[in-house]
């Protein structure tokens, strides 16, 4: 790729999610005219004007805006952590949940619903248990050190299944009128309750994770050559792998803790990226962030516009994404994939 073209691609990658966020301010069940949205935005940017009913400001600026921003962050995080794990484990079937972050976070959230019933504790517990699950997988992977990568994946599978069982246990003991629906709904994933404080809470690990993975993206290429080759090429694999795992975990755990479990994005968005820009992680990882962000905003908009009752995100991502994936496969004939 030549320099001019590459620069154009990067500009597109940065602007696409911003455009999606902008567009989603106009969409929703509460009617707000286009000129009103522009007025509110203008007021928020410059401080000039302000002659509009506060209900419009609440809808556009305090409901739609944080929801779109959070959607962008969550989508970008899930996709980028999936892309990095696929490279790290040299396996295209791996997703962001491979080391147990989703099931760990799910159990943490379920625990919080059982004992606290307060949203702040749900964040803390789901984030904490998501990170804990990955930590456990990593420790299991180090016990027997001859084939570290396979052991790490195996550790992830074991930890995931244990936490899945614990989620079922939590559901079993939960109060079926109050706690159980909350747990089940949380596990389906949603951005409906998004507020700015969610962005502040979940945003820090998510932004650190994304930036870290973007910074180390070329080493993911080298790590995907396998442990021995990466070392012979001069990479300190323990450190580099550790950084990738930590960043991908921060991103995924941050995302899951504010949105619940949203499947599909962390597995398939990286592949859509591969079809579009090829496998070189230097361009694939930024592409995954941008694509994941756009995809989740669009799907979330569909979810809140299509029907009166909101459809949970975890369901829609697969329903919308599946056909889109097949379309792209046909269109690009696999392309750079």
């Amino acid at each position: 790729m030549n320099k001019v073209k590459r620069r154009l691609v990067y500009i597109l990658l940065i602007f696409a999610p911003l455009i999606c966020i902008f567009c989603s301010l106009f969409l929703g069940r509460y009617p707000v005219s286009i000129s009103m949205v522009m007025k509110i935005l203008w007021f928020k940017l410059t401080g000039i004007g302000g002659d509009f009913p506060p209900i419009y400001k609440t809808v556009v600026w305090d409901v739609r805006m944080p929801r779109a921003i959070l959607g962008a962050l969550v989508g970008g995080c899930l996709a980028v952590s999936g892309a990095s794990f696929q490279g790290l484990f040299r396996n295209p079937l791996v997703s962001s949940g491979i080391l147990g972050v989703s099931s760990g976070a799910g159990f943490g959230a379920a625990l919080a619903f059982l004992f606290f019933h307060n949203t702040f504790m749900v964040y803390v517990f789901s984030f904490g248990f998501g990170v804990l699950a990955v930590g456990l997988s990593y420790i299991i992977g180090r016990i027997y050190n001859t084939t570290p990568t396979i052991m790490l994946v195996l550790g992830g599978v074991i930890v995931s299944s244990v936490f899945s069982a614990l989620i079922s246990l939590a559901k079993y003991v939960a109060d079926p009128y109050d706690q159980l629906p909350a747990i089940v709904f949380w596990l389906m994933g949603s951005l409906a309750s998004a507020r700015y404080k969610d962005i502040i809470l979940g945003g820090l690990p998510m932004v650190i994770g994304i930036l870290g993975l973007i910074a180390i993206r070329w080493q993911v290429n080298v790590l995907s050559m396998g442990e021995k080759e990466a070392r012979s090429l001069g990479i300190n694999t323990t450190v580099s792998k550790g950084i990738v795992i930590i960043c991908a975990t921060l991103a995924a755990a941050g995302a899951v803790s504010v949105s619940g479990i949203i499947g599909w994005v962390g597995l398939v968005i990286p592949h859509i990226g591969r079809m579009m820009v090829g496998n070189d992680n230097r361009i694939l990882i930024p592409t995954a962030v941008s694509l994941g962000a756009c995809f989740l905003i669009i799907v979330d908009n569909l979810g809140r516009v299509l029907t009166g009752a909101e459809i949970p995100l975890g369901i829609l991502t697969a329903l919308v994404g599946g056909p889109f994936f097949v379309y792209l496969l046909k269109r690009t004939k696999g392309g750079g994939w």
Binding site: R90, P92, N221, M225, A230, L233, G278, N279, D280
Partner: peptide, 17 residues
């Protein structure tokens, strides 16, 4: 594993630098 371009593979020889 992944279908990298040949030049991207050779470029990995520069990892130490």
């Amino acid at each position: 594993t992944f279908p990298y371009k040949i030049i991207d593979i050779v470029l990995m020889g520069r990892a130490a630098y």
